[in-house]
């Protein structure tokens, strides 16, 4: 029984053949197996492409052009409320503008709002959550007090108040959404930091001489990043809906801006007409519904596949 033990016995045959796989690629692998999630992802991809093309002025450029019609007597009038036809697949609105183009342009507006909001709320949430969880004590008390106060004010009221302070308009709506929306993610981040700072790998990093910021953002942050991704995906839904609600109450998009909220709020009067003008409302609602549903499905699928329960 004289085997050569100890140092010279590399014991590696188990994992030699596979290429190195990070937990991220594992998660992607799991995600790919979820057909519905992949489908949702493609819908979101189309939404993003459309939005960017609209923003770049390459698609639906005619959204603000009024069209005219000539009746039998030769009078020229605005082609308002023409039902869906070959020329205007989703009909026209009161000023004879193509509803399809306006709905497509709406995607660009919602994307802008969502990105602005996400940038703001993720920044605040991660920073405050990390500080509260990692340092604890006095800092934690202040940050907790801050978000508990914020959370105890009804969200919509807070949004309306903030938009009044900042002024009306889409950018300010996005900023207001961001300033209000960080509480949930901040709570999650704080809990994650609390959990991770007690792990031995953090102690090991400390023992190696790493300072608090290095530990917070180089060591712990990658372990909480999946939460940011999930929150980002589900946050899109909030941004899109938030814009619609705030525009509906008259704080968001201005009259000429083709946001989904604008289209929906104008539909109030249109539905009361005889015959009812249903196509702008339906188009905007369906567009919003599909995008939000896709983000929700993807967000849930991301949550499942990025499950922080680490592999054994």
């Amino acid at each position: 029984m004289n085997m050569e033990p100890g140092l010279q016995n590399p014991t590696m045959e188990t994992s030699q053949e596979q290429p190195a796989r990070s937990l991220w690629s594992d998660a992607l692998h799991r995600l790919k197996k979820n057909r519905l999630a992949v489908f949702s992802f493609f819908i979101i991809l189309i939404y993003l492409i459309v939005a960017v093309l609209c923003g770049a002025g390459l698609l639906a450029t005619n959204y603000d052009e009024q069209s005219y019609k000539i009746d039998e007597k030769g009078n020229i009038s605005l082609n308002s409320y023409s039902p869906p036809s070959f020329k205007n697949p989703l009909g026209t609105d009161i000023q004879g503008r193509d509803v399809l183009s306006r709905v497509l342009q709406g995607s660009w507006i919602s994307l802008r709002v969502a990105l602005t909001m996400s940038a703001i709320y993720i920044f605040i949430a991660v920073l405050l959550g990390a500080f509260a969880g990692y340092f604890g004590g006095f800092i934690d008390d202040i940050i907790q007090w801050l978000y508990q106060t914020l959370a105890s004010i009804p969200g919509l009221l807070m949004l309306i108040a903030l938009t009044f302070v900042l002024g009306k308009g889409l950018t300010n709506v996005a900023v207001a959404l961001g300033l209000v929306g960080w509480v949930g993610l901040c709570r999650l981040m704080r809990a994650e930091y609390l959990k991770h700072k007690a792990r031995d790998y953090v102690l090991a990093a400390k023992a190696q001489g790493a300072g608090p910021f290095r530990i917070m953002f180089k060591h712990i942050f990658p372990n909480t990043f999946h939460i940011v991704i999930i929150s980002f995906s589900l946050g899109f839904v909030h941004a899109i809906m938030g814009e619609v609600v705030l525009t509906f109450v008259g704080l968001g998009a201005k009259a000429h801006e083709p946001s989904w909220g604008r289209i929906i709020s104008e539909a109030r009067a249109e539905l009361a007409r005889e015959p009812a003008v249903w196509w702008p409302l339906l188009s905007a609602t369906v567009a919003m519904f599909i995008v939000c549903l896709a983000f929700n499905i993807l967000g849930d699928a991301l949550r499942d596949s990025l499950d922080p329960k680490l592999k054994e």
Binding site: S22, Y201, L203, A205, Q208, P222
Partner: peptide
């Protein structure tokens, strides 16, 4: 203290929680 710690190192009990799962 941080520069002193390089002279004193520690090995932990739990081989799972002592390595950061997101680092190579």
């Amino acid at each position: 203290l941080r520069s002193l710690r390089r002279h004193m190192q520690i090995i932990f009990q739990d081989p799972y929680s002592s390595l950061n799962p997101r680092m190579t």
